[in-house]
């Protein structure tokens, strides 16, 4: 099908590309799913559509009714995707955005007419979540879809991303993805383990860096409610941190294969390479990773063009996951 009645119909069914040329182990194949092909540019298009459509099905949002306001914390991609969906459906979106995200993320929110409420960069995503929860409590008339706690987030991946991956790469042995809200890992991970319980699920995290220095006590720590509610600890087999230097290096290496992807995709690729290097000699494996978005939103960070030490220093101060 090449004719679509709505941009929303373009969400999902993203292509899978062989990146085994970057595998350190000749017996391990690596595939990456290009989520940057979604219309608002990231894997979060799937989540935004699922959150809004579930709210409409539940009667929380009413298509066409006036003055409906949504509020959501986001370091970028969920906000951008929600802004696009809300623009099309006539809802007003307020996004609580940490100050230290790339300028392109901020501009894209404005492109789709979202209102930005700034949260302190030093508090990272935790600070944005905290502020959004506070504002939602003060304004019960606003709709708070809360991607960190909404089962419609992992559901999008359980019903679509997971089945797409298994249909394209049924020989998959390992799934490697980024850990933010945990929606991708929970939804895809659960679906894949139902098809084959031997499939290993690896979570890749960015270092928390200066963000945790803003925490006043350990109870300021945050575990996404969906992670706890949906048995995240049982779905994950491994959780590992990839640092900014490795993330940038692999983001650059992916251009050798013609792939211009975002910095979190480089981090996830670095994690996949680490996973491949730990497969015992003589054992075959097939890793599938997610390339969450394309590189456009990160050009201002100089990630591909500036001196690597400068870029790493800069990346340590912005949220790129």
């Amino acid at each position: 099908m090449t004719r679509y009645s709505s941009v929303l119909d373009l969400i999902g069914e993203t292509p899978m590309v062989d990146v085994s040329a970057l595998s350190p182990n000749p017996n391990v194949k690596i595939w990456t799913k290009l989520e940057g092909r979604n219309p608002a540019g990231s894997v979060k298009d799937r989540v935004a559509l699922s959150l809004v459509e579930q709210a409409e099905a539940d009667g929380i949002l009413v298509p066409g009714a006036p003055d409906q306001i949504l509020i959501e914390p986001s370091s970028g991609n969920t906000g951008i995707a929600l802004a696009m969906v809300c623009r099309m459906k006539g809802y007003h979106l307020k996004v609580v955005l940490p100050t230290n995200v790339s300028i392109e993320r901020r501009q894209l929110l404005e492109v789709f007419g979202a209102e930005i409420i700034e949260s302190p960069g030093s508090e990272g995503s935790n600070g944005a979540v905290r502020m959004a929860r506070g504002l939602a409590a003060e304004h019960p008339e606003w709709v708070f879809l809360y991607q960190y706690a909404n089962p419609a987030n992992p559901k999008a991946h359980y019903e679509h991303t997971g089945p797409e991956i298994f249909a394209d790469v049924p020989e998959i042995t390992h799934f490697v993805a980024g850990l933010g809200t945990s929606g991708t890992l929970l939804g895809v991970g659960r679906y894949l383990k139902e098809q084959n319980p031997d499939i290993q699920v690896w979570a890749i995290e960015p270092p928390t860096g200066e963000m945790v220095d803003g925490l006043r006590n350990l109870d300021d720590g945050y575990i996404p409610p969906i992670f706890a509610d949906l048995g995240g600890a049982e779905i994950l087999d491994r959780k590992t941190v990839v640092r900014p230097r490795e993330s940038i290096e692999w983001t650059r290496k992916m251009t050798e294969l013609g792939l211009f992807v975002g910095i979190s995709s480089g981090a996830i690729m670095a994690g996949a390479v680490r996973c491949a290097s730990q497969i015992p000699e003589g054992q075959a494996a097939t890793i599938v990773t997610i390339a969450c978005d394309d590189g456009w939103k990160y050009l201002s960070t100089g990630a591909w063009t500036d001196d690597i030490d400068t870029v790493v220093d800069r990346a340590s101060k912005v949220i790129y996951f």
Partner: peptide, 10 residues
């Protein structure tokens, strides 16, 4: 040793 934090909303 690190406090658990939201890794980013992506």
């Amino acid at each position: 040793i690190l406090p658990a934090v939201a890794g980013g909303a992506n």
